[in-house]
Amino acid sequence: MKEIQTFAKKYQEEMGWEISEESYAKSRDSLLNNYMLLTTEVAEVAEELRKAFNLKTSYVENGMDEKQAFELAKYQIKDDMGKELSDCLAYMLKFYNYFGIDLEESFYDKMEEVKNRRNKDLVKTEK
C-alpha cells in the first residue's frame, strides 16, 4: 500500500492534480471539487453494478441459469468495473496524501477497530 500511495503522490504532482494548498479558499475549493469527483466515480461503480444486474436478468429471461448468467455478467463488466474502482482509489489517495495519512496504517487500524467493535446486528457463536 505504501508503494501505491507514493506512486499516486508523485503521479498527482506530475499531472498537476494534487489538492491545492495555496490558501484556505483554494484548498477548500479543491477539496470540495475532488470530493465531488470521487462521488461521481462511486456513482459510476453503481452504474457498472446496474449493468451487471440488467445483463443477468436478460440472460435469465433467455433461459440461462441464474448463477451462470451472473458469472457471465460479472465477467463482462470486470474491466470497466476495475477502471471505475481505480478512479475511486485515485481520488481517495489524493485525500490520504493531502491530509498526510498513512493509507496502510489507517486501513489496518480501522479493520482492527471494526473487528473489535460490538455489532448489534452480528451474532457470533461461541465455540
Rank of each mutant, 00 (worst) to 15 (best):
K2P: 03
E3D: 12
E3Y: 12
E3F: 11
I4W: 06
I4F: 10
I4N: 06
Q5S: 04
Q5G: 02
F7A: 13
F7W: 14
A8M: 07
K9Y: 06
K9N: 10
K9T: 03
K10S: 10
Y11R: 15
E13G: 07
E14P: 02
E14W: 08
G16K: 05
W17T: 04
I19P: 00
S20G: 05
S20Q: 05
E21C: 10
E21S: 13
E22W: 04
S23I: 07
S23F: 05
Y24Q: 09
A25Y: 07
K26R: 15
K26F: 05
S27H: 06
S27T: 15
R28S: 08
L32G: 04
L32A: 07
N33C: 08
N34H: 05
Y35I: 05
L37T: 04
L37M: 12
L38D: 02
L38H: 02
T40K: 13
T40M: 08
T40Q: 10
E41V: 01
E41M: 03
V42T: 06
V42D: 01
V42K: 03
V42P: 00
V42R: 03
A43T: 05
A43P: 01
E44K: 04
V45W: 01
E47A: 13
L49W: 05
R50T: 12
K51N: 10
A52H: 00
A52P: 00
A52G: 02
F53Q: 13
F53E: 10
F53A: 14
N54T: 13
L55F: 09
T57P: 01
S58H: 10
V60P: 02
V60W: 01
E61L: 13
M64Q: 14
D65Q: 14
E66N: 11
E66R: 15
K67N: 12
Q68I: 13
Q68G: 06
Q68L: 08
A69E: 00
A69M: 05
F70S: 07
E71V: 11
E71L: 14
K74P: 00
K74Y: 09
Y75A: 14
Y75Q: 15
Y75K: 15
I77W: 03
D79N: 15
D79W: 07
D79Q: 13
D80E: 13
M81L: 15
M81A: 10
G82K: 15
K83I: 08
E84Q: 04
E84L: 02
L85W: 02
S86D: 09
D87L: 02
C88Q: 02
L89A: 06
A90V: 07
A90S: 15
A90F: 05
Y91R: 01
M92D: 04
L93Q: 00
L93V: 02
F95P: 00
N97T: 05
Y98S: 01
G100V: 05
G100W: 03
L103T: 06
E104L: 08
E105A: 15
F107M: 11
F107H: 12
Y108V: 12
Y108W: 12
D109R: 14
D109I: 08
D109C: 08
K110E: 09
M111A: 10
M111T: 14
R117C: 07
R117M: 10
R118A: 09
R118Q: 11
K120L: 06
K120I: 07
D121R: 15
L122N: 06
L122S: 11
V123I: 12
V123H: 08
T125W: 08
T125F: 09
T125R: 13
